[in-house]
Design a protein around this nucleic acid. Structure first.
Lengths: 240, 240
DNA sequence: ATACTTATTGTATTTTGTACAATTACTATT
DNA sequence: AATAGTAATTGTACAAAATACAATAAGTAT
């Protein structure tokens, strides 16, 4: 280590991969923001890009707090579990030509490197109203099967997040409010299938989750359905 | 996002948890550096601390490259697999009184926040000669069972690294050169046991690794041992 | 009464994990 | 040559978990 070396400016940001479970369509969507036309010119003159919600960290907040704040500013949701999953810091990760305009307007030093700590959140899509037209940007949900080209290295960040939930769906279901407080086993199975990308056998799925022992069977059934009504279940409170 | 907001200086560093496998003692040790007396006074006047090897990132290197460089500068080893495992960025992580002296000497802005990306490396301890008395610091191996109080939040960083290898020993053995090119199954089992902290049954261990299919049995036996000589094995080349 | 829809359930089979001890091949000693 | 000492090697019985697979049940609508 050199003594009191001079040191170039680094920006530090957090980016949030917010995955919303769409129970109706049984698919995961990702929350994206549309970068605004930085020069306030008409939209056609500027190639507006989609991006993951993210922002520079503030002075006195932890990384986790920064991620919570950014998520809250963009979705108005609070108390959601956010998991740090990787840090992206390649010197060139924000220096593609496509990103130059945005940086020029939004950064004091547009050429400075930005290191970003990426976070993953999972939510029920019908619990969130993306703040379209809010102070910052338009937000939209996009199916993870049809991801557009994103700003910076955000496609890479999203890809890593999707790998993680695909590998361990079970770790990202409990305590994440991805289902209503009361749900059927079919709803739970659909969620597993959407997260893993696999199709599961009904009988074996039910056997395995009953072994896992995190469900509470309720004395309540579906009503008004055109078939045998399913029993409702809820999650046991996690100990953490 | 605010427009061209002013932004406080953040330092960004990498810290390396280098775990060395000591086959003779069958234990893992961690590579620590001893911070030098910053004021060049006699050692007694300064509470010298142990720390994980780490350094600020340079301008044009990726995070992975920074970790490799730091590791190389401290151990002269190259080509070792380094895995990013977590980023630590609490605003107060370097502001304990114990760390003030060192920061005052080594940082232009001793009060600035430091975000550090932590990396994990595993090596054979007899392959590494820590560079005692080199330009920067003394380096020592310490058993992971007897970790002293470290600088900054390095105990926390080390703790997280140890959790990771404890949970998935198998992922950190292949391709890491933790054993000689030819090794016996007992050597391999000892390594597993050191990493997991568990004791394993010989027959069951052999059954499971033969299922795993990453070993090549060699036509060679131990020589000159006071017991039935063991067969040597080597790892299949990993495909990555 | 019938058709329709989804929920619910069990069994046989395979695979994997676990507990447990006798025999083998070498060296050193007598 | 026989014996003792040491670690390597191997198998079996049992339990638990994963997998493949289809008939019956409980509602609604006609």
């Amino acid at each position: 280590m050199k003594n009191k070396q001079s040191y170039l400016q680094n920006y530090v940001s957090v980016d949030c991969v917010v995955l919303g479970y769409d129970e109706v369509e049984n698919r995961l969507q990702v929350l994206l923001i549309k970068q605004k036309d930085p020069d306030k010119q008409n939209v056609d003159s500027y190639k507006s890009q989609y991006a993951l919600p993210g922002d520079l960290i503030n002075e006195n907040e932890s990384l986790d707090e920064a991620a919570s704040r950014v998520l809250n500013e963009l979705t108005h949701i609070k108390g959601i579990y956010l998991q740090q999953f990787y840090t992206f810091g390649h010197p060139d990760r924000v220096s593609a030509p496509k990103d130059a305009d945005w940086l020029r307007v939004h950064r004091k030093d547009p050429n400075a490197r930005v290191i970003t700590i990426a976070y993953l959140a999972l939510v029920r899509i019908d619990h969130i109203t993306p703040l379209a037209g809010s102070f910052a940007e338009n937000t939209i949900w996009r199916s993870i099967k049809k991801i557009p080209k994103l700003a910076f290295d955000h496609n890479q960040i999203l890809g890593k997040a999707l790998e993680i939930i695909k590998e361990h769906p079970e770790q990202h279901i409990m305590g994440r409010e991805l289902l209503p407080p009361k749900f059927t086993l079919s709803q739970l199975q659909n969620l597993y299938e959407a997260m893993s990308g696999l199709q599961l056998d009904k009988r074996n799925f039910r056997k395995s989750i009953k072994t896992a022992d995190y469900l509470i069977p309720l004395d309540e059934k579906q009503k008004g359905v055109l078939h045998k009504p399913a029993q409702y279940f809820s999650f046991k409170k996690s100990k953490k």
